[in-house]
Every structure is written in C-alpha cells, then in structure tokens.
Design a protein around this nucleic acid. Structure first.
Length: 673
DNA sequence: ACGGATGTGACA
DNA sequence: TTGTCACAT
C-alpha cells in the first residue's frame, strides 16, 4: 500500500483517465474494418489460440473475458476477430501500444500535472485549471454546455424521472453549489474537453473519473465505460464506499483484501469503519493501518506525480512448462533477444528523451526437479548498465550465471542439471534525464548527486516512447558545439563553474560507426568545485557494485583500472586539447581561460584541471576522466570521445575484444551474429 | 507449471 | 543499496 499521507487539501480536483480496451482500440485504428466488430487482442496464437490481453466491448457483450484463451473466446463468440500482438525477436513486442499510450499522454498533459500510471491510464491534477475556470468562466456563466459534459454521471445525483442531461446541467450550473462541487464541475468540463481532444487526435475513446483524490477518481473512472465520465461529489462518498466490495479498491485486490475478508469479516469498505485506526494498525502495521482507516473514509493524500515517462524499461518472456530453458546456450540465446529489445528501447529513450538508465537487472524464475531443496527462488541480480546491446548481453549473462550458481547452491550437481528457467527478463532502471538547455554538463553532475532526491524530472516535455521508425526529433536542428565558439553568457561570472550549453549532447549523430574504440567502463563521475576540496562529495563513492565474480574475470580492464586508481597523472600543458576547447567554448565565462591539462605517467587516470579566471575567481574542475560514466562519454562529440580515449588508454588496445567499439555498439545496436 | 509482459512501490 | 514481495493491467 502507498504510504498513508495526509491530504494536503480536500479540494483538489483529480482525474483518472483510462483508455477503453486500449490494445483493441489500437488495433482497430490500424485496421478500421475491425471497428464496431467484436474483437480481442491475443498473444501467442499457437497454444489454445493464445491468451487474451484485451477485449473490445462488442465481444464483452458475448461474455468474452480477458485471460480467456483464444479458443474459448471463439466458442463464446464465434464471430470474434482475434488480433495478435506483434512479435519481434521471438517475443511479444508492445512497442506500438506504448507509443499509442504516449500519444494520449501528451494530450492529457496539457491541462495540468499529469502522471502516467500505466500504459493506458493517467492521473491528472486539475486543481489549478479548475480554480482558474471557476474564477474566470464558471459553469453557471456559460450559456451552453458541451454534450459530452452533460453525459457525465454525477454520483449521488438523482434525476427523479427528469431528463438526465437536464439534471446534470442543473448540477453543473447551480450557482449556490458547494465550492468543492463547483470545482468538480469545472474539472468535469476540462476532462470532457480533454477526452474529446484525445478522440479527435488519436481516435481513441477513454473513460474518466473526476474526484477530490486519486483513489476516488480511479474508482469512478471504471464505473461507466466505455467513453463516459463519472464525477464523485464529496456528499456521495459515504454511500459509495459503504457497499463497495473491499476487493474493488485499488491495492486491496490481493492478499491484503483477502485477509481483511477472511480474518476480519470485512467485505465492504464500509465494514472497515467499525475498526479503530489503532486496531487496524495492530493488524497490519502502522502505515497500512492508517491507510486503511483513511480509505474507508474516502481519504487519500497521494499526490499526482508529474511524470510522463516510465521509470524503467523491461523486456521479458516466460517459458512455461515444457518450454523451460535447460541449457546455458538456450538462456544465452534468449538473453540476447531480450537484451536487444531492451537496448533499442534504451537507445530510443536516450535519443528522444535524453535519459540515461544506470542499472541493469536480471530476473528469472527457475525450477529444480532433482533437488528436494526446490522452492528456492532464483535471485534477481543487478549491475551498472553499460549502453550497447552486446554489453548488455554480456552483463546480463554474467548476472544470470551469478544467480544460477547461487540458486543451485555451492555444489551444483551439474550432472543431472535438473534446472529449468521458466521466466527470463532484463530491465533497466534508475533512469536519469540529461538536462537539456544550458549548463548541461554541470547540471548532469549535480543530477547524479540528486539521484534519489526530490528534484523533478527534467526532460518530460514530450512523452516519447521508443518509436523505432520515426526520425529523431529535435536533434537535427541544433548546431555543433565545436563550431560554436561563443555561447550566450547566461550564468554571469559567478559561483558555480558552469559549462554552458550543451548542444553537443543533443545533436550528436552516429556518424562514426566503424571507428574502433576502446572502452572504459568507469561508473562514478566527479566534479569538484574549488581546488582540492570536493564539496559535493557524496557521490564520490558511488560504489559500483561489481556484479558477479565471473564478471570480474571477464573484465580484466576493470580490475586493472581499479588497481591503478590511485595514480595521479599530470599532462603537460596542451593547448590543443579539443576536450579543453570544448569545455572552454562552452564555458560560461566570457573572459579568457587558462586551461591546463595535467597528467602524469599513467594512462588510466587523467586529471584535467581547468582554471577559469573570471572576476578574480578561480574555479577548478577536476574530472576523473577514467571514472566518467560511459554513457556520458558516448554523448560527447566524437572528436572528444576519441581524444579522451587516446589520452586514457594508449596501450590497452590490445586487450579489447572485437565488439568493444563502444561507439559502434552504442549507435548501432549490435546485430552481431 | 499457460494469466503474459510490463510496470510501480514498499520493506528488510 | 540491493533484492524481494505485492499489486496492477
């Protein structure tokens, strides 16, 4: 359950919007002849007709249910059109649905804070918009009200025999209504408008709930479907919840809900009212107890998070029963497929949203036939994420092997090898936006500091999913930083050492595919202000948990590097360093800069010191170049990447495997065979 | 062990 | 922090 938060206000206007039988609508838009016909979307057609993942309303009338098999659906509804989910790399590929969801999100985000709750649902906080409307153009001032709004369902409003719409109109426009009801009315107008907008621009219908908090809005959005909206007035809440089966509440559809029923005889939300907060806390803990006590009263303080993009990407597949994977080779093969998909999506996220994922996690389910010690779970494992399909594959495989060893126990009776993998998945998380606009490098550094802080997401202007076919937007139009000798001086000469602008991040294109490049896999990145001190120390330590032990074996470079870590290198002054030029030309300082690049002996570490003389101040940036996040390096203009690498690693070349050209991998998701 | 693929959030 | 669990669609 969510944390039991107090309500910040009881007059928020929250909407939950849910696209009706989403996958089906996507397919109907693609194949218009399916419109109005009974249809369902199915995946894996082979076994019993595949499993339904979405059912259109025409088919629902015939009793077709989600999670029926295709065959059963045909039985119940012989005319049904079963559309298959696209398959790529041997697995279901939901890309088209994600993209369609993004279309909707970008429309819904226009009127207020918007949270993408799932592929087909969003929450909106329309409080400001509703208040504004109430002030400027309150409903009662309108002479006509849109048809769509009049079709709203207003809970607790009984049109005793009278015309429904007329009753709704009266409710919407009554000048002496409760202030909170007026706000709801405004919310309803706004939501209806948004829904029409969605329909016009995407051809999708959706349903919505409008209420004072997320919980009630979510509840309401499901009450009248499809293509309708429902308003929860505060006066209707008690009656609504009183008889509502406990399992209908979000978060109570599982074990907790069952426990409530069987252990305490709570069948409806209303039944909860008999328990004191303390009692509920005794049963389920302080947080959950309070949360339960609150929701029984229609209280829910959860905020609508402003987030248009997903926080993680995953690619997975199940291998049920007989199809379980029993050899490392099979696992490797599927891992490759999964990692390639994941890599593409990460790539797309990077290009379109300027975001970088930092953690790779492998999940698996396994069974062990031989051992009595069965039932152990296959452990999930994670490691720092390196971009490039091949690297992700390698890392994922290592994670898997680490997990397998743990799973099988130290001895691993490998003879029978009685194990099987029934589910495999890889996912990428800790996705951080690369700030765009000015000072991107600096901001990025700071951003790493705030990895978990409250800071709002930064590149969420356009919710763009991995659309693997469309061109990169917003990239072409920018200038190359290298030709940009001067930038607007936006940060004056004070304080923070700032690298100005960042076009480099945005515009770099994958032109140099073949250039062979080594790879250095540092994780931590440090920026320090002031000579030796490192005020922003926190993230210095960024422990990059090495994944499995095997991994070390496979990555001798890592080991070597970390052994060398202490060596200080000082390069003699090299005015020609394009890195420095890059930093200079992008520096916020309008005055001259005296830059030095010092290095000593080693190739692993290079401490670059830039002295910026600006109004008597000296700011020194100390980049531990070998610790720069690979992803960041990959973002830099190619010349600079090249230079960084040559400075860093003249000798290590020998060691690199053929596919280690990080740039190449990075931009052309390894189609290695 | 055919409710699949995917995502979020809390807790230890 | 990582890994596990619960929950959801």
């Amino acid at each position: 359950m969510p944390i039991a938060r107090p309500e910040t206000s009881d007059s928020r206007i929250i909407a939950h919007v849910d696209i009706d039988c989403f996958y089906v609508q996507v397919e109907q838009r693609k194949q218009p002849h399916l419109r109005g016909k009974p249809a369902a979307v199915v995946q894996y057609n082979s076994w019993k007709g595949g499993g339904l993942i979405a059912v259109g309303y025409e088919a629902r009338k015939d009793g077709v249910k989600r999670s029926m098999r295709g065959d059963e659906a045909k039985k119940v509804c012989p005319q049904i059109h079963l559309v298959q989910v696209p398959v790529a790399r041997g697995k279901a590929d939901l890309t088209i649905y994600r993209n369609a969801g993004s279309e909707v999100v970008s429309i819904l985000a226009r009127k207020g804070r918007c949270e993408r709750a799932s592929i087909d649902e969003v929450y909106l906080d329309l409080t400001d918009a509703a208040e504004l409307m109430l002030k400027e153009t309150p409903p009662e001032s309108l002479e006509s009200i849109d048809e769509e709004v009049l079709k709203s369902h207003v809970l607790g409003l009984n049109s005793n025999g009278k015309d429904e719409k007329e009753t709704v109109r009266e409710w919407l426009q009554q000048g002496d209504a409760d202030h909170r009801d007026k706000l709801l009315a405004c919310g309803a107008l706004i939501v209806a408008e948004l829904r029409l907008q969605v329909l016009k621009e995407t051809e999708f219908t959706c349903s919505a709930g409008i209420a004072h908090n997320k919980m009630l809005a979510k509840l309401a959005s499901g009450m009248n479907k499809p293509a309708q909206q429902t308003i929860v007035t505060s006066s209707s809440v008690k009656g609504l919840l009183e008889t509502l089966p406990i399992k209908k509440m979000k978060q109570l559809g599982g074990k907790l809900g069952s426990s409530l029923q069987t252990d305490h005889g709570v069948n409806t939300v209303g039944d909860l009212l008999q328990f004191s907060e303390g009692k509920l806390q005794d049963f389920y803990g302080v947080n959950t107890g309070t949360w339960l006590w609150n929701i029984a009263r229609g209280i829910s303080g959860e905020e609508v998070e402003g987030r248009l993009l997903p926080k993680s990407h995953g690619s997975g597949k199940t291998f049920p029963g007989p199809s379980a994977l029993k050899t490392l080779t099979a696992v490797e093969k599927w891992l490759k497929e999964l990692c390639e998909e994941l890599s593409e999506r990460l790539q797309s996220d990077l290009e379109k949203n300027k975001r970088i994922a930092h953690t790779l996690t492998l999940h698996a389910n396994a069974y062990k036939s031989t051992d009595a010690d069965s039932h152990k779970k296959f452990p999930s494992k994670s490691c720092p994420l390196r971009y490039g399909a091949v690297k992700i594959q390698e890392d994922a495989l290592n994670l898997f092997q680490g997990g397998l060893r743990e799973y099988l126990g130290s001895y691993m009776g490998n003879e029978c090898g009685g194990w099987g993998i029934t589910n495999l998945s890889v996912s990428a998380s800790k996705i951080i936006a690369i700030p765009s606009g000015t000072s991107s490098i600096t901001k990025y550094f700071h951003c790493r500091d705030q990895l978990q802080s409250s800071s709002e997401p930064q590149n969420e202007n356009l919710p763009v999913e991995d659309d693997l076919s469309s061109p990169i937007i917003g990239a072409e139009s920018r200038h190359s930083p290298l030709h940009q000798t001067e930038q607007k001086d936006e940060c004056g000469g004070e304080g923070v050492p700032t690298v100005n602008d960042t076009s480099g991040f945005d515009q770099y294109e994958p032109e140099s595919k073949e250039e062979a490049r080594g790879d250095f896999a540092g994780e931590a990145f440090r920026l320090s202000t002031g000579a030796e001190s490192c005020p922003t120390s926190k993230h210095n330590e960024m422990k990059t948990s090495l994944p499995a032990k095997e991994m070390k074996m496979k990555c001798p470079n890592d080991v070597i590097r970390s052994n060398d870590r202490k060596r200080k290198i000082t390069t003699k002054e090299k005015g020609t360093s394009s890195i420095l030029k890059f930093l200079q030309s992008n520096s916020c300082s309008s005055s001259k800069q005296d830059t030095k690049c010092s290095s000593l002996g080693g190739q692993d570490q290079l401490d670059m010191v830039t002295t910026t003389q600006t109004s008597n101040r000296t700011d020194i940036w100390s980049y531990k170049v070998d610790e720069i996040d690979q992803s960041v390096v990959n973002e830099l203009p190619p010349e600079i990447q090249e230079e960084l690498r040559s400075l860093l690693r003249p000798k290590k070349r020998a060691n690199m495997s053929k596919d280690s050209s990080s740039i190449a991998n990075y931009f052309s998701p390894a189609k290695n065979k």
